[in-house]
């Protein structure tokens, strides 16, 4: 495997780290979704660079398109949830969401 692949994977890992850091520390629900988006970017990068590595970028391209479509559906659902939550709690803070425990 080429070093090129390794380099891109390293950057994908950095993007994943940023996303997970955001998920772990941020409070704002929309910020959390942004974190998920950043993770998704890292993953698309990993997919495409794997395709390049195998000289088969067309396949991964189609995978990325499917991935993006799914991501959009997921995001739409999540945003709808956030708006509903906002109506209930009048807040966008994740710390309001601790009713269920134990």
């Amino acid at each position: 495997m080429s070093n090129h692949w390794l380099l891109n994977m390293g950057f994908a890992a950095a993007l994943l780290f940023i996303g997970i850091f955001c998920l772990l520390t941020m409070k704002n629900l929309i910020k959390l979704l942004i974190g998920i988006e950043i993770m998704a970017k890292g993953i698309t990068l990993a997919l495409i660079t794997s395709g390049v590595e195998r000289h088969n970028v067309m396949v991964t391209q189609s995978l990325v398109i499917t991935f993006i479509v799914i991501e959009v559906s997921l995001l739409a659902t999540a945003l709808a949830l956030i708006i509903n939550i906002y109506r209930h709690t009048k807040s966008l803070s994740i710390s309001k969401l601790t009713n269920l425990k134990g």
């Binding site: 988006e37 970017k41 698309t44 970028v57 991964t60 391209q61 189609s62 990325v64």
Partner: peptide, 14 residues
């Protein structure tokens, strides 16, 4: 990287 369609999707959708 030679993945124009993915690029287009990335721009237009994401």
């Amino acid at each position: 990287m030679g993945a124009p369609y993915a690029g287009v999707f990335e721009v237009s959708i994401v």
